[in-house]
Simulated assay, not measured.
Amino acid sequence: MWYLGPIPLRGYALSIICGIIIALWVGRKRYAARGGNPDVVLDAAIVAVPAGIIGGRLYHVITDNHKYFCSDCNPIDALKITNGGLGIWGAVIVGTLAVWGYLRFKKVPFAPFADALAPGVVLAQGIGRLGNWFNQELYGAETTVWWGLEIYYRVDEAGNYAPMTGRSTGEVIATVHPTFLYELVWNVAVFVFLIWMDRKFKLGHGRVFALYVLSYTLGRFFIENLRTDEATMIGGLRVNAIVAVVTLIVAAIVFFSLKKGRETPAQVAGGKLGSAVDDAASEVMEGAARADAKVKASEEDS
């Protein structure tokens, strides 16, 4: 964290903001290429971003409820989002539901919109993981590999340990597996994979989004089990790993159940515009059919 006068600039927040901007840029280009109005992406973002933050916080508070609802805890701390604690699962679920509701109200089909945004979303998640580097958090066990992350001891002006706001003393506490970096690399790989699959197989009807969920959770399961930070456990397993497996299975079923092919630009646009384009296309086809019938009739007469 740095200070611009009295204003704190947090590395984690800056990482998330950069991810959101890039996701919007990618999403607008992809949605426009599919036949949608790119401005809808910006409108949806106004709904998705705050909903995602609320969802991420809710997931964290629910899965780590022992930190906020115990005999020595202050439940008000659950509202102090600046103290840290966001769960990507809750952010994606609540953000997606909010966008679905908004698009339904605007009479814009959700599936092609989700397909257009999915690659940018997973790329944004990867960029957001840089925030874990700034915070020196979400890492794995100690290691001797050359890419291991050195965790430095940081103190404030009073000499107290302050991992996020303090200055390094130069003392290395440990060298660990940078699991957030592994997830960043995986997310970028998923981004490239989704773009390739979409172009090669002309995916549509929500299949790109389902493939995003499937691919992300596959990597997240293995990466989650490399982490050694404090986590809520169920039956000896990290709750996020369990969520990853369940979500992966559901996403795989959905992916193979959805209709193959891709929507037409008119279907993507939806609403009045889509209906108008469909009507115009129908008139053209009917006109062509009538003209063809006249030509055949003339040939028969001659």
Rank of each mutant, 00 (worst) to 15 (best):
S71W: 10
R154P: 03
D64T: 04
V185G: 05
G120C: 04
F110Q: 01
R220A: 08
T96I: 00
I151S: 02
L123A: 07
I195A: 09
K259G: 14
T228F: 01
T264S: 15
I249Q: 02
I223V: 09
R30H: 13
A288P: 04
D278W: 09
A98E: 09
L218G: 10
K106N: 05
R57C: 11
A289F: 13
F193S: 13
L203H: 09
A244R: 00
I127R: 06
N37Q: 12
V190I: 13
V254Y: 08
R30D: 03
G287L: 01
T82L: 14
I76V: 15
N65E: 02
A231K: 03
Y182R: 03
W196H: 13
I16S: 02
A297H: 04
C70Y: 04
A124D: 02
P38I: 02
N225G: 05
A98Q: 04
L130Q: 04
A174H: 02
L273Q: 08
I20L: 12
M1T: 14
E286P: 03
Y153M: 12
L9E: 07
G235V: 11
A291S: 12
F222K: 04
A118N: 11
G287Y: 04
T144Q: 04
P112F: 01
V295C: 00
G19V: 00
R290T: 11
G55W: 03
Y68D: 03
V121Q: 10
V49H: 05
V277G: 01
F69G: 11
G128Q: 05
I17W: 11
G90Y: 00
A276D: 15
V190R: 02
L194M: 13
P119I: 06
I249K: 02
R28G: 03
W147C: 07
D39I: 07
G271N: 14
W89C: 07
G261S: 08
V41E: 05
N74E: 14
M233L: 10
L218Y: 12
D115Y: 03
I53Q: 05
A189K: 03
W133G: 06
G271E: 12
G219M: 09
G126R: 00
L24K: 00
S168Y: 10
V245A: 12
S257W: 05
A13C: 11
W89L: 08
R28W: 00
A44N: 02
P119R: 10
I53D: 01
T228Y: 01
I20A: 12
P112C: 10
A241L: 07
V277E: 14
I234M: 08
F256Y: 13
Y153Q: 15
